[in-house]
């Protein structure tokens, strides 16, 4: 009896999240030119990377450097770019909602604020991830051959959900600073630069010097880009379970931070006007 009640509550909640996700996606489809622009830019950048890494490998397809062939490097970059470009800019969204008071129309609803944004974010990020993955694959497939990664694909998809959740929480922690400070762009900028370097977006951590690898392993950024992309191209080089556990750990830590910050922040919210 109680079980069934619980179940129906859960189904209502998931339908709620589903409805938020659906409408976010539908609204996304209105920005077609935006997608085309981003996609062509991705094509260009990946083409440049193909050229750069081909030069670095001196065109040798069989050479293995720190566990990566040229083909693996290029596909690695396709995966990190797809995740990076999949993540929408939460900071500007939240900052605008707080600044112009649009947060009011979120808070009059019987739904958690962070939860609402997570549902919307997930829909957008997953959708964009797959589009960019498809676009990036065109380049990689053409220049370095098909992605025959077998279990790697399973590894990629299973770690990507955790990865974009970590990206959400990291961005949310920065975005929620909008309750206290007027400008969060500066901090968002720093965050992006950290993903870009110590997250392994342009360079797998394995190719970095020892000392930097050791630092990276203590930071959440590797779990966001390096884990899924490395697992995809080099399945089995690290335990999937262990990586998932590290992701879960970071998600727990960051989720606690996010909730605490939200509670503290919303209590001191003041909306302009009237």
């Amino acid at each position: 009896m109680i079980d069934r009640k619980m179940q129906s509550v859960l189904s209502l909640k998931s339908k709620k999240a589903g409805a938020v996700a659906t409408i976010t996606l539908r609204q996304q489809l209105a920005y077609k030119t935006d997608f085309i622009m981003r996609s062509t830019f991705l094509l260009l950048i990946l083409f440049v990377f193909v050229q750069l890494w081909s030069s670095a490998y001196e065109g040798d397809r069989t050479r293995i450097i720190d566990g990566y062939t040229l083909k693996q490097i290029i596909w690695y970059l396709v995966f990190t770019e797809a995740i990076t470009m999949g993540v929408p800019s939460l900071c500007s969204l939240i900052e605008n909602e707080v600044k112009n008071g649009d947060i009011a129309i979120r808070l009059i609803r019987p739904i958690s604020y962070v939860g609402y944004h997570y549902a919307a974010y997930l829909a957008e990020a997953v959708f964009r991830f797959f589009i960019h993955l498809a676009v990036g694959s065109i380049i990689a497939w053409t220049f370095v051959g098909p992605p025959s990664f077998g279990w790697g694909w399973a590894g990629l998809f299973s770690l990507t959900l955790g990865a974009i959740s970590i990206a959400f929480l990291l961005n949310m922690v920065v975005a929620l600073c909008a309750f206290w400070v007027e400008e969060t762009r500066g901090m968002e900028f720093v965050l992006h630069k950290l993903q870009f370097t110590v997250g392994g977006m342009l360079l797998p951590l394995d190719l970095m010097p020892e000392w930097l690898q050791r630092i990276c392993s203590w930071l959440p950024f590797q779990a966001m880009l390096y884990f899924p992309a490395r697992t995809a191209v080099n399945y089995g080089s690290a335990s999937l379970l262990q990586q998932a556990a590290i992701q879960a750990g970071w998600i727990a830590v960051l989720a606690v931070c996010t909730v605490m910050m939200y509670r503290k922040g919303v209590a001191k919210l003041h909306v302009n006007g009237g």
């Binding site: 339908k15 709620k16 589903g18 409805a19 409408i23 609204q27 209105a30 019987p110």
Partner: peptide, 17 residues
């Protein structure tokens, strides 16, 4: 903004369960 009002109706119906 980019969607017809009926979509917002649907969303709201879910949000209010």
């Amino acid at each position: 903004y980019h969607l017809p009002p009926i979509d917002t109706f649907d969303l709201i119906s879910r949000i209010y369960e």
